[in-house]
């Protein structure tokens, strides 16, 4: 009887332990773990009425200002894991003048590290004219982007083809909207 019991227990133990094994798995693969989220974020937007390009009845050639204290690129996580960025701009213009838009990316010493420029078409009849522009940041331009502490924005009023000037009765506005798409790769 004791012998039979022992046999059953041994068989059971064998079933429970000896047969058990881990096969066909490689836990070292965990070292290959790579997360690749793509983050989409609003960046800048502004709307300027035609009248904003006037001062004392005279045309202002350029409207400019800057955003300082940009801290996002001081973050180690962003510096180490951001592998590419795309900035998208959309300008909606209903002023009968074309504009040149310029963004300067300045580092902590207020030195320009990167510049992007594009033109927005004029709207001869007051309808919204949409101009899109995108810029891809990789390698050198990405490194420049990562040093950014200040972004300076300029909206420059281009001379009209027919010599006409804006005045207080000029209609329309120029609308700038943008977003950034940031590609991250987070490894182990």
């Amino acid at each position: 009887m004791l012998f039979k019991k022992a046999i059953v227990l041994i068989l059971f133990g064998a079933l429970a332990t000896s047969l058990s094994c881990i096969s066909d798995v490689d836990f070292n693969q965990a070292d290959e773990l790579l997360l690749a989220p793509v983050i989409e974020s609003s960046i800048i937007h502004t709307e300027q009425a035609a009248s904003h390009f006037l001062e004392n009845g005279n045309e202002l050639v350029v409207v400019r200002d800057s955003i300082g204290n940009i801290e996002i690129f001081e973050d180690e996580f962003v510096i180490n894991n951001l592998i590419r960025a795309e900035l998208f701009f959309e300008v909606t213009n209903s002023i009968n003048r074309s504009f040149s838009l310029q963004l300067n990316f300045l580092d902590e010493n207020e030195e320009v590290q990167h510049t992007l420029t594009f033109d927005a078409d004029a709207s001869p009849n007051g309808n919204d004219i949409i101009t899109n522009y995108e810029e891809n940041f990789e390698d050198d331009s990405l490194n420049a982007l990562k040093t950014t502490r200040i972004i300076a924005v300029e909206i420059r009023l281009n001379p009209s083809d027919d010599g006409s000037m804006l005045d207080e009765n000029s209609m329309g506005r120029v609308l700038l909207q943008s977003k950034g798409v940031f590609y991250l790769e987070i490894g182990t």
Binding site: S42, I44, N69
Partner: peptide
């Protein structure tokens, strides 16, 4: 959050650009 307005004019909200920026932060 929908981004920030770099050509923020004081007239819009009676704020200085710096105060506007600090408010978002």
């Amino acid at each position: 959050y929908e981004g920030f307005n770099p050509l923020f004019s004081e007239v819009d909200g009676g704020q200085t650009p710096e105060a506007y920026w600090n408010e978002i932060a």
